[in-house]
Structures are given as structure tokens and as C-alpha cells.
């Protein structure tokens, strides 16, 4: 039981179908609170699909069916009485392509707190916006141009703005779907550094194609292959001495 307390997300027997195609074959996984967990694996292995199960983004896809349990601190997020919209305020998401709203930087941050009625517009909102931007380490770069469009920022800044936007809702978990795949190495390093800071307060789950990024930025790594979770463990163990041969082959670049 003591170890269960540390689990933020507990996934048991998760299966997912797209129509008749079974994309995930029963995943069991514990995602620990306050850690960065990376999902790696070749394209089409189901890691992104699995990530999107964690905040029910797959609900939007027609013909997508999920079986099994995903527990957020013991609460089944697929229970019939769960409000999906509210769930996503607890489990936020950052996407592959930086996707700020075509609005001002300030509005990008203020939007979600406003629609959720967290704070009123005015000084409170100003403070919330500043806090979120500070936590995302982008405040110093944008504090003088809060009214400028978010889309005018560089790619890396846009992605940190998106992270700030997610933080503004004060979620428990932040899901990141290949957040650096469109960024240059410097911007990537900044995001990785940011993840390291954010894990003090949030549980972070990241999907990445870049194994080195998983190695650099995560505490735990899960390797997916063809809809199965092959191996899950501490990143340092996975990257020096994986116990499964398929993990070993993938990590060392033996893609067959």
C-alpha cells in the first residue's frame, strides 16, 4: 500500500481499439508522482495513443474504444460519472507542434482560468498569468510584450508558452506529446530543463522519439512495441542495462 501512495496514475489492463484494430493489448503501468516518465518506442507502437488515454483525448476519435482502468490517485477516469472536460483540467496536455491560440500572450494564459472561473479578470488574473509564465521560465522573455500575439514568438518560446498555459490551470499531471520534435537543440534543452524544474510540483509524462531526450530528461522510461509495454523501469537502468532483449535492441539502435 505504501508504494501505491506514490502512484499518481495507475493503469491496469488497458486495451484500446480503433474500430476492429486492437492498438493497445493490455497495459499495466504505475506512473509515480513528482517524476518525469518517458514513453519511447518506434512509430506506431502505441505510445502516443496510450498517452492520449490518460486524459481521454482519444474520446474525440470516432470508433475508438477503451477497456481497462486508468486511476488518477485511485479514481477511475473512465467511470461513467466522470466529466471529461473537468478531467482535462487535472491532466493537462502539451502537444507536438507548439499551438498557441492566435491571441495575445496574456490571453493564451488567461483563457483557461477564465473559462473555468478560477479567477476574475483584473489584478488576480495578472498575477496568475505572471506566475504561470514564470514557472514556465518564459516571463523574462515576454513580460514586455504580453499583448503581442503568441504566434509571433519563436518555436521554443511558443512551446514554453503552451506549457505555461497548461500550468495556469494548475493540473496534477502534464502530458507532453513529443514536445520538442519541432524545436532546435537549444530550445529543446530549455524545455528539458523546464521539465526538471516542473517535476517538483507536477507529475510529467512525455512521449518522445528521441531516445537521448528520454535518457536526459526522464526518471522512468517505458518502452512500447506494437501495442505492448515491453519494459518499464528507472531510466538509468533502462539505458545501461535493460532486462529485455527487445528494449536493448531498440535502445542500442538495432532496429532490425
Amino acid at each position: 500500500m505504501a508504494t501505491d501512495m506514490k502512484n499518481k496514475l495507475t493503469i491496469r489492463g488497458l486495451k484500446l481499439w480503433y474500430g476492429d484494430f486492437e492498438a493497445l493489448h493490455g497495459i499495466d503501468l504505475d506512473i509515480l508522482a513528482g517524476k518525469v516518465t518517458a514513453f519511447i518506442g518506434p512509430s506506431g507502437c502505441g505510445k502516443s495513443t496510450f498517452l492520449r488515454c490518460l486524459n481521454r483525448m482519444n474520446d474525440r476519435i470516432a470508433g475508438c474504444r477503451v477497456e481497462g482502468d486508468v486511476l488518477l490517485e485511485g479514481n477511475d477516469i473512465y467511470a461513467p460519472d466522470v466529466d471529461v472536460v473537468q478531467l482535462r483540467t487535472h491532466i493537462g496536455m502539451v502537444f507536438q507542434k507548439p499551438n498557441p491560440f492566435p491571441k495575445s500572450i496574456y490571453e493564451n494564459i488567461a483563457y483557461a482560468p477564465r473559462i473555468h472561473g478560477m479567477v476574475q479578470d483584473g489584478p488576480d488574473m495578472d498575477e496568475l498569468v505572471e506566475t504561470a509564465l514564470r514557472k514556465a521560465s518564459i516571463w523574462d522573455e515576454v513580460k514586455d510584450k504580453l499583448q503581442q500575439p503568441g504566434t509571433a514568438l519563436s518555436g521554443g518560446q511558443q512551446q514554453r508558452l503552451c506549457i505555461a498555459r497548461t500550468i495556469a490551470v494548475q493540473p496534477d499531471v502534464i502530458l507532453m506529446d513529443e514536445p520538442c520534435s519541432a524545436l532546435d537543440p537549444i530550445a529543446t534543452a530549455k524545455i528539458e530543463e523546464l521539465m526538471d524544474e516542473l517535476k517538483q510540483e507536477y507529475t510529467i509524462v512525455i512521449v518522445t522519439h528521441n531516445m537521448q531526450q528520454a535518457a536526459r530528461a526522464s526518471d522512468y522510461t517505458a518502452y512500447f512495441y506494437l501495442g505492448d509495454l515491453i519494459e518499464y523501469g528507472e531510466t538509468s537502468q533502462i539505458f545501461t542495462a535493460p532486462s529485455n532483449q527487445r528494449t536493448e535492441d531498440y535502445i542500442t539502435g538495432r532496429f532490425g
Binding site: F239, T240, I251
Partner: peptide
């Protein structure tokens, strides 16, 4: 090469 796992060892 940034070796990992068996290669690294």
C-alpha cells in the same frame, strides 16, 4: 555514437 545499454557497457 552515444551508445546505450549493451553497447555502452
Amino acid at each position: 555514437r552515444q551508445p546505450a545499454a549493451g553497447d555502452l557497457r
